[in-house]
Design a protein around this nucleic acid. Structure first.
Length: 477
RNA sequence: GACCCCAUCGUCUAGCGGUUAGGACACCACCCUUUCAAGGUGGGAACACGGGUUCGAUCCCCGUUGGGGUCGCCA
């Protein structure tokens, strides 16, 4: 078999959305599976609609996802002359012709065709006119008027289309620039693309592109048309869903590998659900993909992201902390890093995104500010603090072993037993004194993470506040 | 409207003629428990419909319905 070469070919007319990323990912996966090459090409032949902002956004997004392609990103606009050359070649061969129909005439044909229930719009009136090169006109491809074109699509199976339903579509515009149909086919051929893997909104293009490929005798690529993704409301997903731009997911604190893992599982169910890209690349195949469209489900995406965050916290805490710093555009001091290293695992069990993780980590990086933001927590604290003996804990701290949470738990349990109360009567106010919130990790976990000195200081601050508002004694002395 | 495609729990999926239709997310209950989680156990929940083919259809064929895509001098 010839070398496998795939490509992802976004047009820079807007944000890269989740559907486009999935297409890129599938291209990547397939190329990797068969030791092939995955390329990226920007389809910017429409210079009116392509923007430099969109191009840099796409480059940024692909870099974030690490789906940049195995060679430098190509730009279709740089290959104008080659596209024109091929068009002229087809023209010379008599397989294309000049057409001078105006947009107005075409509009008329369009409504006529629609009214008549015809798929083909253009009535081919210039087909045999043999217009001179100097007249203002476009170049159209002569599509066979009979027979049918069959695509053996790797995902969709065999799809047939009657040639008479196909238009003599435009290759070169009036201004001489190539259309997408032309440049796509030429670039695919010149880049040696063996497998065209794209959204199934391109199925109809495949029939038409095949006519062009045959007209110029390019090798025919294999096709695989992916069913499109739908939004969670069942509506179609598109560039117009601004909120679904990939940058949005990055800003929310999703991990690219989690997003990709989630996306990979839409339409492909082989192997374990949580599968790294390299694991997936070992077993992936296009033929196994579902023909049915899938809806994106953010709850499920969150689950995948949470799994990745937890696994990172468990196996590569420093790596995760680095990513938190990067995400928050901040740099942690070595003291803070130490705190995070100790606390990250239990924090990760209650967060789904980097953003949430950073927020949750504040309990270790910042002492609670009294009065508390969380008034319910403050009420809870004030009501239980008189019987909790927090100051005794503070005094005993230096004698306790802070090196791990298990021994700390024993110390606290002994303290609780001495007081003859329920654990919660001490644990609750202590947790709030230490973190300022009721939603926090295990109390001994918190103390272990914070360390003796910080625990003492936070207890003092909390008791001072209690004293201030309810004349509660700050020390046992 | 014409053409093309699709159809298993709410969602993502497994299934490739004979299964108690499996798993995951979400949801509910219980357990664990010092809060919040995580974890564990259990539960409800699906083959769109109608015809065939067959001893037997979720699976094969044909319709219907529903959904999607395309119909640009956009890509």
């Amino acid at each position: 078999m010839a070398a496998i070469v795939t490509r992802f070919a976004p047009s820079p007319t807007g944000m890269l959305h989740i559907g486009g990323v999935r297409t890129a990912l599938i291209n990547w996966l397939f190329a990797r599976r068969y030791g092939g090459c995955y390329l990226v090409r920007i389809e910017d032949t429409d210079r009116k609609r392509s923007t430099p902002e969109a191009i840099s956004a796409i480059e940024h997004d692909l870099r974030w996802l690490d789906l940049q392609g195995d060679a430098a990103i190509g730009f279709q606009s740089t290959r104008l002359e080659r596209h024109q050359e091929v068009a002229l070649q087809i023209l010379d061969a008599g397989k294309a012709y000049r057409c001078q129909c105006s947009p107005e005439e075409l509009d008329a044909m369009r409504s006529e065709a629609r009214a008549a229930g015809r798929t083909r719009v253009y009535d081919r009136r210039c087909r045999e006119a043999k217009l001179a090169p100097d007249t203002q006109c476009v170049v159209r491809l002569k599509v066979p008027t009979s027979g049918e074109t069959v695509i053996e699509d790797i995902i969709q199976g065999s799809i047939a289309m009657e040639n008479d339903h196909l238009d003599d579509y435009i290759l070169l515009r009036v201004d001489g620039t190539p259309t997408y149909m032309l440049s796509c086919v030429v670039d695919d051929a010149d880049m040696g693309i063996s497998h065209v893997v794209r959204g199934d909104d391109h199925i109809n293009n495949a029939f038409r592109q095949l006519q062009l490929i045959r007209a110029v005798n390019f090798p025919e690529p294999a096709y695989a048309h992916l069913p499109l993704l739908h939004g969670d409301d069942g509506a179609k997903l598109s560039k117009r869903h601004g909120a679904l731009g990939i940058a949005h997911y990055q800003e929310q604190g999703y991990l690219p590998e989690a997003l990709l893992n989630y996306l990979m599982r839409l339409g492909w169910g082989k192997g374990e659900e949580i599968l790294s890209l390299s694991q997936a690349a070992e077993i992936f195949d296009l033929a196994e993909m579902s023909k049915a469209p899938a809806q994106v489900d953010f709850a499920r995406l969150n689950y995948f992201n949470a799994q990745y965050i937890r696994s990172l916290a468990d196996h590569d805490a420093d790596g995760l902390i680095d990513r938190m710093a990067e995400f928050g555009h901040s740099k942690y001091t070595s003291l803070q890093q130490g705190l995070l290293r100790r606390g990250i695992l239990s924090l990760s069990q209650r967060t789904e995104t980097l953003q949430e993780l950073i927020l949750a980590a504040e309990i270790y990086l910042k002492a609670p500010k009294w009065p508390l933001q969380e008034s319910k927590a403050e009420k809870q604290f004030l009501s239980k603090v008189p019987n909790a003996g927090l100051d005794q804990i503070r005094v005993q701290c230096p004698d306790w072993d802070f090196s791990n949470a298990v021994t700390l738990k024993n110390h606290i349990e002994q303290h609780v037993a001495k007081h003859g109360v329920e654990f919660g009567q001490v644990g609750q106010p202590l947790r709030i004194a230490l973190t300022g919130t009721m939603r926090a990790p295990d109390i001994s976990e918190i103390m272990h993470t914070l360390g003796c000195v910080e625990v003492q200081q936070r207890i003092i601050s909390a008791l001072e506040y209690a004293h201030k508002v309810m004349k509660y004694p700050t020390t046992t002395r």
